Simulated scan of single mutants.
Amino acid sequence: MAHGKTETLIPDAAGIARAADLLRTGQLVALPTETVYGLAGDATSNIACARIFEAKGRPRFNPLIVHLPSVGAAEAIAAIPDTARQLAAAFWPGPLTMVLPLRDGHGLSPLVTAGLDTVAIRLPAHAVMRAVLGAVGRPVAAPSANPSGRISPTTADHVRAGLDGRIAAILDGGPCNVGVESTILAPADTGTRLLREGGIPREAIEALTGPLVSDTTPGKVQAPGQLSSHYAPTTQMVLNSALDDPDAILVGFGPGTAELTLSDSGDLTEAAANLFRILHEADALAEARGATAIHVARVPHEGLGRAINDRLTRAAAPR
């Protein structure tokens, strides 16, 4: 798909209004969220949603997350069980997506749900994204603003590198502060399933819900981020490395001598915020030096480390 010149918008009143105008006419705009940049389109428009899949090269069986400004807006398109209401009160707006049963007359494009009878909904916390949602006045579908399967974008430059000329505009809101995609849950009164690790640690959720049932790589995709290969650089990755290969690009965690690091201090929140930026930098270095591998140090599998390791494992999976 050739779109032409991609505009760069700044997050002032004029930029937000321009983004909203483009979305209302079925165009695509990359928008900042607290997690990663989203490739936004009108979730009620078949044309806009088809353009999202086309621009990303995304398989049509992979559903989209619908971004909304309020719980009231969510209730208009989905049934919200009691457990979901408790989770909403605790974590919305924020990096939590919930997969909920669709209501009759929801008005969404069938492309959003990939033929499922559920819809993935998030209330983002990012002020710029919320301003655009308020100005558009309709549900907005927004998967990550990158070619499907590749490293997610946490800056406007990352978006431009992957989608320049394929979308109408990028609203540059600076770096994303969470840095990994939202946690996805399927809450029900009988229990809650974890469909994707993400920006809210499992431990924080289980303090409210009790133990979660993990269902992150099912036989049939139920939510975004469940494909076994995803978030991948062009260079092959090696995980839990001792960082002793002089010919590889080395990515450390904690104190050490690796050229790149997720966090010098071993802080998982910092590592999550840096993850995709560091993978972009490592991939560029590998290409420039002719390196055939990126080696990544072990990251503790606790708190946000679960989401980091989920992304790294999918990025390193066979393609």
Rank of each mutant, 00 (worst) to 15 (best):
A2V: 12
H3K: 01
T8M: 13
L9R: 08
A13M: 00
A13W: 02
A14S: 11
I16A: 04
A19F: 07
L22R: 11
G26V: 05
A30V: 12
T35H: 03
G38C: 05
L39R: 10
A40M: 05
N46H: 08
C49L: 10
R51F: 03
R51K: 15
E54F: 01
K56W: 07
K56P: 08
G57W: 01
R58M: 04
P59K: 08
F61P: 00
N62H: 13
P63G: 02
V71M: 10
A73Q: 13
I77M: 13
A78Y: 05
A78I: 08
R85T: 02
R85W: 03
Q86P: 00
L87Q: 06
A88W: 03
A89L: 05
D104Y: 02
D104V: 11
G105C: 12
H106L: 06
G107A: 05
P110W: 00
P110I: 01
P110T: 00
A114T: 01
L116H: 15
T118L: 10
A125C: 01
H126T: 00
M129T: 15
A131N: 00
G137D: 09
G137P: 07
A141S: 05
A142W: 03
S144G: 01
S144F: 02
G149N: 04
I151V: 13
P153C: 06
V159K: 07
R160G: 04
G162I: 15
I167M: 10
A169S: 11
D172A: 04
D172P: 13
G173S: 07
G174I: 08
P175A: 13
C176E: 12
C176G: 10
V180R: 03
T183E: 09
I184C: 05
L185R: 14
A186N: 15
A188W: 06
G191Q: 06
G191N: 08
T192F: 12
L195A: 13
E197Y: 15
I200S: 09
R202A: 14
A204S: 12
I205P: 05
E206W: 14
T209C: 09
T209D: 10
G210L: 10
G210Q: 06
V213C: 04
T217K: 13
Q222T: 12
P224E: 03
G225K: 05
Q226G: 10
Y231T: 12
Q236P: 09
Q236E: 15
L239N: 15
L239C: 14
A248G: 08
A258H: 09
D264N: 10
S265E: 15
L275F: 11
R277G: 11
L279R: 07
A284Q: 15
A286D: 07
T292S: 15
A293Q: 09
A293T: 13
A297T: 04
G303W: 07
G305R: 10
G305W: 07
N309I: 09
T313K: 13
R314P: 06
R314E: 06
A315Y: 05
P318Q: 11
P318L: 08
R319Q: 12
